[in-house]
Design a protein around this nucleic acid. Structure first.
Lengths: 141, 141
DNA sequence: CTACATGCAAATAATTTGCATTAGC
DNA sequence: GCTAATGCAAATTATTTGCATGTAG
């Protein structure tokens, strides 16, 4: 579990502690593949026998985003949606307006395009997120 | 003001009414060029001598998004950021992580890329939003 | 006239925070 | 042991909603 080492180092470097709760959140985040909301993560943790309060889930999630192990995918009207990143290569998302399904894709051309666009605007791009909205295969009608 | 006509038609078609408050919100939205938060819009309306409660600002904003006269640009931790769209061609955004500045850009290549990607995934894309994050010219260091 | 819209204040709901207690290092 | 982390419940904050009253068509 490379992610545990990454997290430990990150915390250590800032004088923070690797607690049971933080470990529980991290391992739960990496126990499945897909997108999640904080509340869903919280319920999985409770169901898994570990313990961590909602507050700790939120606090830990912030740390995980800060150290790059988790990424905020998008924000719905309800709240944030996250995904873990380690072992995941960079990708973007298509979101179905009908059923809400989130489909991942990767485009080499898009990566190059970002560099081009940044150069043209004297901007130093560090990351990008392309979100395409529409109808997925199932909801095509 | 084409946008007034568009809004009037939209409302009429749904049996809704064009009230003073809705007119005030629309004209305030179109009175300046740039991105805004609901609260900022509300304060501008109050300052301009028109009247519309915060509730009406929110309610009207939803209608304007629904009829396409306003678009939600992004969502910060605080809340939504909007922009008006009429007379504005489609574009995407670069957001500076340091100062928060939002820079607009347009890329023909990106438009084509969306179609390509959708085709490849049997997705019917209706819109996209590319958000590039990094450092703007001023904050480049 | 008769829906529909308004303003207000109360309700929501996700996230954050203060604080007394517990636990890494 | 010292400092940071936890759980809880209360606080925050953007947005929504119920309701009595006002108004556009």
């Amino acid at each position: 579990m490379m992610e545990n080492i990454i997290f430990r180092n990150f915390l250590g470097g800032k004088g923070l502690k690797l607690t049971k709760e933080r470990t529980a959140v991290l391992s739960e985040v990496y126990s499945f593949h897909g997108h999640f909301e904080p509340e869903y993560l919280y319920s999985r943790i409770k169901g898994s026998g570990s313990k961590a309060s909602r507050a700790s889930v939120y606090r830990t999630l912030s740390l995980l985003v800060e150290c790059g192990l988790v990424k905020r995918v998008t924000r719905t009207d309800k709240g944030n949606i996250y995904e873990h990143t380690y072992g995941h290569s960079h990708h973007d998302h298509m979101i179905c307006d009908i059923c809400g399904e989130i489909i991942e894709f990767f485009s080499e051309k898009l990566e190059k395009l970002q560099d081009e666009i940044c150069e043209k605007n004297s901007f130093i791009g560090s990351s990008h997120a392309l979100e395409i909205r529409g109808r997925c295969k199932k909801c095509r009608m």
